[in-house]
Simulated assay, not measured.
Amino acid sequence: MARDEDELELFRYELPEDLIARRPVSSRSSARLMVLDRGAKSIEHASFESLSSYFDEGDCLVLNETRVIPCRLDGTRTETGGKLELLFVRKRERSLWEALVRPARRLRDGTDVSVSGGATMKIIERVSGARFLVEVPENFESYLEQWGKMPIPPYLKRAPDSQDKKDYQTVYARVLGSSAAPTAGLHFSRETMRKLEAKGVSVTKLVLHVGPGTFKPLVPGPLSSQKLDPEYYEITSETCHVVNRTRGRGGRVFAVGTSTARALETVTALANNGRDSSLVPSHGWTEKFIYPPYEFRAIDALVTNFHLPASSVLLLVCAFAGTEFTLSAYEEAKERQYRFYSYGDAMLII
Protein backbone atom coordinates (compact mmCIF):
# COMPACT_ATOMS: atom_id res chain seq x y z
CA MET A 1 0.00 0.00 0.00
CA ALA A 2 1.39 3.44 -0.94
CA ARG A 3 2.38 5.59 2.00
CA ASP A 4 -0.12 8.32 1.10
CA GLU A 5 -3.05 5.89 1.08
CA ASP A 6 -5.30 5.13 4.03
CA GLU A 7 -3.17 2.70 6.02
CA LEU A 8 -5.93 2.52 8.63
CA GLU A 9 -8.09 0.47 6.27
CA LEU A 10 -6.16 -2.66 7.27
CA PHE A 11 -7.31 -2.23 10.89
CA ARG A 12 -11.03 -1.82 10.26
CA TYR A 13 -13.57 -4.54 11.00
CA GLU A 14 -17.34 -4.82 11.20
CA LEU A 15 -19.00 -5.38 14.58
CA PRO A 16 -22.68 -6.17 15.17
CA GLU A 17 -24.28 -3.68 17.57
CA ASP A 18 -25.42 -6.47 19.87
CA LEU A 19 -21.79 -7.38 20.69
CA ILE A 20 -21.11 -3.94 22.22
CA ALA A 21 -21.31 -4.35 26.00
CA ARG A 22 -23.61 -1.65 27.41
CA ARG A 23 -22.96 -2.77 30.99
CA PRO A 24 -20.26 -4.94 32.57
CA VAL A 25 -20.96 -8.45 33.81
CA SER A 26 -22.26 -8.57 37.38
CA SER A 27 -18.95 -9.82 38.82
CA ARG A 28 -15.81 -8.11 37.51
CA SER A 29 -13.70 -11.24 37.21
CA SER A 30 -16.42 -13.38 35.62
CA ALA A 31 -15.82 -11.79 32.21
CA ARG A 32 -14.56 -14.09 29.49
CA LEU A 33 -10.85 -14.15 28.68
CA MET A 34 -9.37 -14.87 25.26
CA VAL A 35 -5.71 -15.90 25.54
CA LEU A 36 -3.41 -15.34 22.57
CA ASP A 37 -0.03 -17.10 22.54
CA ARG A 38 2.17 -15.15 20.15
CA GLY A 39 4.80 -17.87 19.82
CA ALA A 40 2.45 -20.77 19.17
CA LYS A 41 -0.09 -18.62 17.29
CA SER A 42 -2.76 -20.34 19.37
CA ILE A 43 -5.96 -19.11 21.00
CA GLU A 44 -7.53 -20.36 24.24
CA HIS A 45 -10.88 -19.45 25.76
CA ALA A 46 -11.09 -19.01 29.52
CA SER A 47 -12.58 -16.88 32.29
CA PHE A 48 -10.85 -13.86 33.78
CA GLU A 49 -11.02 -15.70 37.12
CA SER A 50 -8.33 -18.02 35.74
CA LEU A 51 -5.90 -15.18 34.93
CA SER A 52 -3.40 -16.20 37.63
CA SER A 53 -2.86 -19.59 35.98
CA TYR A 54 -1.00 -17.84 33.13
CA PHE A 55 1.57 -16.30 35.52
CA ASP A 56 4.72 -17.85 36.98
CA GLU A 57 6.29 -17.06 40.31
CA GLY A 58 8.67 -14.15 39.80
CA ASP A 59 6.57 -12.42 37.13
CA CYS A 60 5.29 -8.90 37.76
CA LEU A 61 2.04 -7.14 36.99
CA VAL A 62 1.96 -3.40 36.29
CA LEU A 63 -1.31 -1.52 36.86
CA ASN A 64 -2.41 2.01 36.01
CA GLU A 65 -3.81 3.45 39.26
CA THR A 66 -5.30 6.57 37.71
CA ARG A 67 -8.76 7.46 38.99
CA VAL A 68 -11.53 8.62 36.67
CA ILE A 69 -13.00 12.03 37.46
CA PRO A 70 -16.81 12.23 37.24
CA CYS A 71 -16.15 15.11 34.87
CA ARG A 72 -19.25 15.27 32.71
CA LEU A 73 -21.81 18.00 33.44
CA ASP A 74 -25.04 19.10 31.82
CA GLY A 75 -25.34 22.87 31.62
CA THR A 76 -27.64 25.63 30.45
CA ARG A 77 -26.68 28.93 28.83
CA THR A 78 -27.81 31.48 31.39
CA GLU A 79 -29.01 34.02 28.79
CA THR A 80 -30.74 31.77 26.26
CA GLY A 81 -31.58 28.56 28.12
CA GLY A 82 -29.76 26.53 25.47
CA LYS A 83 -28.54 23.12 26.64
CA LEU A 84 -24.83 22.25 26.78
CA GLU A 85 -22.79 19.18 27.67
CA LEU A 86 -19.37 19.81 29.23
CA LEU A 87 -16.59 17.24 29.63
CA PHE A 88 -13.74 18.58 31.78
CA VAL A 89 -10.45 17.12 30.60
CA ARG A 90 -7.59 19.09 32.13
CA LYS A 91 -6.96 21.47 35.01
CA ARG A 92 -4.98 24.56 34.00
CA GLU A 93 -5.03 26.52 37.26
CA ARG A 94 -7.07 26.49 40.44
CA SER A 95 -10.18 27.97 38.81
CA LEU A 96 -9.50 27.32 35.11
CA TRP A 97 -10.13 24.01 33.36
CA GLU A 98 -10.18 22.87 29.75
CA ALA A 99 -13.46 21.29 28.71
CA LEU A 100 -14.96 19.78 25.60
CA VAL A 101 -18.32 21.49 25.07
CA ARG A 102 -21.20 20.44 22.83
CA PRO A 103 -22.72 22.07 20.87
CA ALA A 104 -19.70 24.31 20.31
CA ARG A 105 -20.23 26.05 16.99
CA ARG A 106 -21.98 29.20 18.23
CA LEU A 107 -20.53 29.27 21.73
CA ARG A 108 -19.02 32.70 22.45
CA ASP A 109 -16.34 33.79 24.88
CA GLY A 110 -17.87 35.16 28.07
CA THR A 111 -20.94 32.92 28.00
CA ASP A 112 -22.25 32.12 31.49
CA VAL A 113 -23.34 28.53 32.06
CA SER A 114 -25.59 27.28 34.88
CA VAL A 115 -24.94 23.74 36.12
CA SER A 116 -26.24 21.40 38.82
CA GLY A 117 -26.27 22.48 42.45
CA GLY A 118 -26.88 26.15 41.64
CA ALA A 119 -23.29 26.70 40.41
CA THR A 120 -22.32 28.97 37.54
CA MET A 121 -19.24 28.89 35.31
CA LYS A 122 -17.99 31.07 32.47
CA ILE A 123 -16.62 30.23 29.03
CA ILE A 124 -13.35 32.20 28.85
CA GLU A 125 -12.06 31.36 25.39
CA ARG A 126 -11.99 28.73 22.69
CA VAL A 127 -8.74 26.71 22.79
CA SER A 128 -9.40 24.78 19.58
CA GLY A 129 -12.39 23.12 17.97
CA ALA A 130 -14.81 22.13 20.74
CA ARG A 131 -12.22 22.61 23.50
CA PHE A 132 -12.73 25.69 25.69
CA LEU A 133 -11.09 27.27 28.71
CA VAL A 134 -13.72 27.49 31.43
CA GLU A 135 -13.71 29.39 34.73
CA VAL A 136 -15.09 27.03 37.37
CA PRO A 137 -16.28 27.41 40.99
CA GLU A 138 -13.98 27.03 44.01
CA ASN A 139 -13.23 23.49 45.18
CA PHE A 140 -14.19 22.20 41.75
CA GLU A 141 -12.88 18.65 42.27
CA SER A 142 -15.18 18.27 45.28
CA TYR A 143 -18.03 19.75 43.27
CA LEU A 144 -17.47 17.18 40.50
CA GLU A 145 -17.42 14.32 42.98
CA GLN A 146 -20.88 15.37 44.15
CA TRP A 147 -22.53 16.56 40.95
CA GLY A 148 -20.49 15.21 38.03
CA LYS A 149 -21.35 12.19 35.92
CA MET A 150 -18.93 9.53 34.77
CA PRO A 151 -17.52 10.12 31.25
CA ILE A 152 -18.60 6.80 29.79
CA PRO A 153 -17.80 6.27 26.09
CA PRO A 154 -20.14 7.80 23.50
CA TYR A 155 -20.62 4.45 21.73
CA LEU A 156 -22.62 3.17 24.74
CA LYS A 157 -25.39 5.48 23.49
CA ARG A 158 -26.88 6.08 26.91
CA ALA A 159 -26.61 8.57 29.74
CA PRO A 160 -24.28 7.73 32.64
CA ASP A 161 -25.94 6.83 35.93
CA SER A 162 -25.00 6.16 39.53
CA GLN A 163 -24.00 2.55 38.77
CA ASP A 164 -21.32 3.79 36.37
CA LYS A 165 -19.58 5.58 39.26
CA LYS A 166 -18.70 2.12 40.54
CA ASP A 167 -18.47 0.17 37.30
CA TYR A 168 -16.31 2.67 35.36
CA GLN A 169 -13.55 2.71 38.01
CA THR A 170 -10.90 0.11 38.81
CA VAL A 171 -10.83 -1.32 42.35
CA TYR A 172 -7.27 0.01 42.76
CA ALA A 173 -7.86 3.53 41.37
CA ARG A 174 -6.11 6.12 43.53
CA VAL A 175 -4.74 9.17 41.69
CA LEU A 176 -7.51 11.43 40.35
CA GLY A 177 -6.97 12.69 36.82
CA SER A 178 -8.54 10.63 33.99
CA SER A 179 -11.48 11.51 31.80
CA ALA A 180 -11.70 7.94 30.50
CA ALA A 181 -11.09 4.67 32.31
CA PRO A 182 -8.10 2.36 31.78
CA THR A 183 -10.64 -0.30 30.92
CA ALA A 184 -8.46 -3.44 30.98
CA GLY A 185 -8.23 -2.91 34.74
CA LEU A 186 -12.00 -3.00 35.20
CA HIS A 187 -11.89 -6.81 35.21
CA PHE A 188 -9.70 -7.02 38.31
CA SER A 189 -11.31 -7.81 41.65
CA ARG A 190 -9.67 -7.87 45.07
CA GLU A 191 -9.73 -11.68 44.86
CA THR A 192 -7.91 -11.64 41.50
CA MET A 193 -5.18 -9.50 43.03
CA ARG A 194 -4.93 -11.79 46.06
CA LYS A 195 -4.51 -14.89 43.86
CA LEU A 196 -1.69 -13.26 41.89
CA GLU A 197 0.20 -12.15 44.99
CA ALA A 198 -0.25 -15.60 46.57
CA LYS A 199 1.41 -17.09 43.49
CA GLY A 200 4.50 -14.94 43.97
CA VAL A 201 3.66 -12.29 41.39
CA SER A 202 4.90 -8.79 42.19
CA VAL A 203 2.20 -6.16 41.70
CA THR A 204 3.29 -2.59 41.09
CA LYS A 205 1.62 0.58 39.80
CA LEU A 206 2.14 3.65 37.68
CA VAL A 207 -0.06 6.55 36.61
CA LEU A 208 -1.14 7.58 33.13
CA HIS A 209 -4.14 9.88 33.07
CA VAL A 210 -6.29 8.71 30.19
CA GLY A 211 -7.89 11.50 28.18
CA PRO A 212 -10.81 11.65 25.75
CA GLY A 213 -8.33 11.18 22.92
CA THR A 214 -8.60 7.44 23.58
CA PHE A 215 -11.95 7.60 21.72
CA LYS A 216 -10.78 10.13 19.13
CA PRO A 217 -10.77 8.63 15.63
CA LEU A 218 -7.46 8.50 13.83
CA VAL A 219 -7.24 10.46 10.59
CA PRO A 220 -7.26 8.45 7.35
CA GLY A 221 -3.83 8.43 5.75
CA PRO A 222 -0.28 7.38 6.61
CA LEU A 223 0.22 6.08 10.14
CA SER A 224 3.42 8.08 10.50
CA SER A 225 1.42 11.32 10.26
CA GLN A 226 -0.95 10.50 13.15
CA LYS A 227 -0.83 12.61 16.31
CA LEU A 228 -2.19 11.54 19.70
CA ASP A 229 -3.29 13.94 22.40
CA PRO A 230 -0.60 14.25 25.13
CA GLU A 231 -1.34 12.35 28.36
CA TYR A 232 0.37 12.82 31.72
CA TYR A 233 2.26 9.91 33.28
CA GLU A 234 4.31 9.18 36.41
CA ILE A 235 6.54 6.18 37.12
CA THR A 236 8.17 6.03 40.55
CA SER A 237 11.54 4.64 41.59
CA GLU A 238 9.74 1.83 43.43
CA THR A 239 7.96 0.69 40.27
CA CYS A 240 11.19 0.92 38.29
CA HIS A 241 12.90 -1.22 40.91
CA VAL A 242 10.20 -3.93 40.78
CA VAL A 243 10.16 -4.08 36.96
CA ASN A 244 13.96 -3.99 36.60
CA ARG A 245 14.37 -6.67 39.29
CA THR A 246 11.81 -8.88 37.54
CA ARG A 247 13.66 -8.60 34.26
CA GLY A 248 17.01 -9.18 35.93
CA ARG A 249 15.75 -12.43 37.44
CA GLY A 250 14.24 -13.70 34.19
CA GLY A 251 10.60 -12.95 35.05
CA ARG A 252 8.01 -11.54 32.69
CA VAL A 253 6.42 -8.08 32.81
CA PHE A 254 2.63 -8.09 32.32
CA ALA A 255 1.12 -4.70 31.49
CA VAL A 256 -2.55 -4.15 32.32
CA GLY A 257 -3.93 -2.06 29.50
CA THR A 258 -2.58 -0.10 26.58
CA SER A 259 -2.16 2.98 28.80
CA THR A 260 0.27 1.06 31.05
CA ALA A 261 2.10 -0.31 28.02
CA ARG A 262 2.48 3.17 26.52
CA ALA A 263 3.82 4.60 29.77
CA LEU A 264 6.36 1.79 30.17
CA GLU A 265 7.49 2.01 26.55
CA THR A 266 7.78 5.80 26.85
CA VAL A 267 10.06 5.55 29.86
CA THR A 268 12.13 2.69 28.42
CA ALA A 269 12.85 4.89 25.41
CA LEU A 270 14.26 7.51 27.82
CA ALA A 271 16.68 5.07 29.50
CA ASN A 272 20.11 5.42 27.93
CA ASN A 273 18.39 6.81 24.83
CA GLY A 274 16.59 3.50 24.39
CA ARG A 275 19.76 1.40 24.29
CA ASP A 276 18.55 -0.96 27.03
CA SER A 277 15.21 -2.00 28.50
CA SER A 278 15.69 -0.74 32.05
CA LEU A 279 13.26 1.76 33.55
CA VAL A 280 14.17 5.06 35.17
CA PRO A 281 11.85 7.17 37.36
CA SER A 282 10.08 9.68 35.19
CA HIS A 283 7.07 11.94 34.84
CA GLY A 284 5.82 14.12 32.03
CA TRP A 285 3.59 14.01 28.98
CA THR A 286 3.57 11.30 26.35
CA GLU A 287 2.23 11.41 22.81
CA LYS A 288 3.73 8.02 21.95
CA PHE A 289 1.81 6.32 19.17
CA ILE A 290 2.64 2.62 18.88
CA TYR A 291 1.71 0.89 15.64
CA PRO A 292 3.09 -1.99 13.53
CA PRO A 293 5.92 -2.64 13.11
CA TYR A 294 7.23 -1.85 16.60
CA GLU A 295 9.75 -3.59 18.85
CA PHE A 296 8.49 -3.68 22.44
CA ARG A 297 11.24 -3.34 25.02
CA ALA A 298 9.37 -2.93 28.31
CA ILE A 299 6.65 -5.59 28.37
CA ASP A 300 6.35 -9.34 27.77
CA ALA A 301 2.58 -9.78 28.08
CA LEU A 302 -0.50 -7.58 27.82
CA VAL A 303 -3.95 -7.67 29.42
CA THR A 304 -6.36 -5.68 27.28
CA ASN A 305 -9.93 -5.41 25.98
CA PHE A 306 -11.49 -5.70 22.53
CA HIS A 307 -11.05 -2.29 20.94
CA LEU A 308 -12.75 -0.06 18.38
CA PRO A 309 -11.82 -0.56 14.71
CA ALA A 310 -8.89 1.49 13.44
CA SER A 311 -8.28 2.99 16.90
CA SER A 312 -4.85 3.85 18.31
CA VAL A 313 -5.28 1.22 21.04
CA LEU A 314 -6.13 -1.51 18.51
CA LEU A 315 -2.99 -0.60 16.55
CA LEU A 316 -0.90 -1.00 19.70
CA VAL A 317 -2.38 -4.47 20.22
CA CYS A 318 -1.64 -5.34 16.59
CA ALA A 319 1.94 -4.14 17.05
CA PHE A 320 2.31 -6.46 20.05
CA ALA A 321 0.53 -9.60 18.82
CA GLY A 322 0.83 -9.15 15.06
CA THR A 323 -1.84 -7.60 12.87
CA GLU A 324 -3.04 -10.76 11.11
CA PHE A 325 -3.12 -12.79 14.35
CA THR A 326 -4.96 -10.03 16.23
CA LEU A 327 -7.62 -9.47 13.59
CA SER A 328 -8.20 -13.20 13.15
CA ALA A 329 -8.67 -13.43 16.93
CA TYR A 330 -11.23 -10.61 16.71
CA GLU A 331 -13.14 -12.56 14.05
CA GLU A 332 -13.14 -15.62 16.30
CA ALA A 333 -14.33 -13.46 19.21
CA LYS A 334 -17.25 -12.27 17.10
CA GLU A 335 -18.14 -15.84 16.13
CA ARG A 336 -18.06 -16.88 19.79
CA GLN A 337 -20.14 -13.88 20.90
CA TYR A 338 -17.51 -12.16 23.04
CA ARG A 339 -18.58 -8.79 24.42
CA PHE A 340 -16.62 -5.84 22.99
CA TYR A 341 -15.24 -2.47 24.12
CA SER A 342 -14.93 -0.82 27.54
CA TYR A 343 -17.45 -2.91 29.46
CA GLY A 344 -16.75 -6.06 27.47
CA ASP A 345 -14.60 -9.15 27.82
CA ALA A 346 -10.81 -9.36 28.16
CA MET A 347 -7.84 -10.55 26.18
CA LEU A 348 -4.46 -11.77 27.45
CA ILE A 349 -1.54 -11.77 25.02
CA ILE A 350 1.52 -13.77 26.08
Rank of each mutant, 00 (worst) to 15 (best):
P103K: 02
S114Q: 07
I123R: 02
L315A: 07
S225N: 06
K41Y: 03
Y291C: 10
E324R: 15
E145Q: 14
Q169C: 06
L314P: 08
G251A: 05
L223R: 11
L87F: 10
S237K: 13
F325S: 09
S47N: 15
A321N: 04
E197H: 03
G274W: 02
T66W: 07
V127Y: 02
S50F: 06
E93D: 14
K199Y: 00
L270I: 02
G75I: 03
E85H: 00
V219E: 14
Y338R: 10
P182R: 00
A198L: 10
L51W: 11
F296Q: 11
D109G: 14
L10H: 12
G177E: 03
E65V: 10
S52C: 14
T192I: 01
E324K: 15
V242S: 11
T246D: 08
L228H: 13
P293Y: 04
H209L: 00
T78Q: 14
A180N: 00
A130L: 01
V101C: 09
R275H: 01
V243C: 15
Y54H: 15
W147N: 14
R131W: 02
R32Y: 02
S282G: 05
R194D: 08
E7N: 08
A198M: 09
R247E: 02
L73F: 10
D4N: 12
M150I: 02
R67W: 11
F325V: 09
S277W: 00
M34A: 12
Y172T: 07
L315C: 06
N244S: 04
A261P: 13
D59G: 08
Y341V: 00
Q146S: 12
H187V: 01
H187C: 01
F132D: 07
V175G: 00
A333D: 07
I20N: 11
V101L: 09
V62C: 12
S27R: 14
T204D: 08
L133E: 14
D276N: 14
P16F: 08
R190N: 09
S27C: 11
I235S: 04
E14S: 15
M347I: 09
R90D: 08
E5H: 11
K165I: 00
D164A: 04
L96R: 11
R131Y: 00
N272S: 01
V134S: 11
D345G: 02
T120E: 14
